[in-house]
């Protein structure tokens, strides 16, 4: 619903062929310009293919001897995601409303939106490194990192949902003499609830994935175990951990699909 479809009766406009040619040339120029910087070496990919095959070979068979510690690491990762997302949802509800142009005046929406931009534009991995310095190594730093970053994302998504609501039910509530906050609770929130729930669950899924990465900087969970094992060149164990991450994330995705259905 955030995307607007082209109206069917309006024919698609085709750019004149010269302009099209120029824009394709511009795209090609950007890729050519990035070639050197990104250190693209396709020939070496072919040259070292033997190495890559050997490396891939080292991953098999996966070594599940330490599976208990991997599974508990994965659970820890899920727990970090649960708290990081939960705290973010609690904060994103009021902040999202304050970002919505049809709820708050511009002198509130503008500063709140800029603050949320900051939270969103800095990657959770960066936040995790900062929080590790602040609160020490461990899952709590991961929770804080996910919390800040996810608040920025959810507040923006929540605000967009609020700005797309139908104003007439809100006016219906207003006409009864209800207070402003009651207009929001009775007129706005019921309308955006399915979208908000859907966004929150989606962020929870991606936070489980992110949480398995932020362990790399010492913020706990399966990522931390993964990092230690890769550095020890234990590729068979690495493979086992990767399988556990894939299975864990898939399970979470399937579960949240089910929960999402209940909200619509």
């Amino acid at each position: 619903m955030l995307l607007r479809a082209t109206s069917p009766d309006k024919p698609l406009s085709y750019m004149p062929s010269l302009a099209r040619l120029l824009s394709w040339l511009a795209v090609a120029a950007v890729f050519a310009w990035s070639w050197h910087g990104a250190d693209i070496r396709p020939l070496e990919l072919a040259k070292y293919s033997g190495n890559i095959v050997t490396l891939a070979h080292d991953f098999f068979p996966p070594d599940f001897n330490e599976w208990r510690s991997y599974v508990s690491g994965m659970l820890l990762t899920v727990q970090i995601a649960v708290w990081g997302t939960g705290l973010a949802i609690v904060c994103a509800v009021p902040l999202g409303l304050l970002c919505a142009g049809n709820i708050a005046p511009w002198w509130i929406t503008q500063p709140t939106r800029r603050l949320m931009d900051v939270c969103r534009s800095i990657n959770e991995l960066v936040f995790a490194m900062l929080f590790v310095v602040a609160v020490g190594l461990g899952p709590f730093a991961g929770v804080l990192a996910l919390w800040v970053h996810t608040t920025g994302i959810l507040a923006k998504l929540f605000a967009e949902a609020v700005e797309a609501i139908d104003a007439s039910p809100v006016e219906g509530i207003r006409a009864t003499g209800a207070r402003h906050i009651e207009e929001i609770v009775y007129g706005v929130i019921p309308q955006v609830m399915p979208l908000w729930a859907s966004f929150s669950l989606y962020r929870f899924e991606s936070n489980v994935r992110s949480a398995s990465v932020i362990g790399l900087v010492g913020a706990g969970g399966i990522g931390q175990i993964l990092w230690e094992i890769i550095r020890a060149f234990e590729f068979q164990q690495t493979c086992a951990i990767m399988i556990i991450i894939v299975v864990g994330v898939s399970l979470i995705d399937a579960m949240s699909q089910q929960i999402r259905r209940a909200f619509i």
Partner: peptide
């Protein structure tokens, strides 16, 4: 009491809650 052409009820809420909104004030 204000009655609108498009009813202006909150579609996702039960009828009872919509009616109870009259007591909010």
């Amino acid at each position: 009491g204000f009655v609108f052409q498009q009813f202006n009820l909150v579609g996702r809420l039960p009828v009872l809650t919509n009616v109870l909104a009259g007591a909010l004030s």
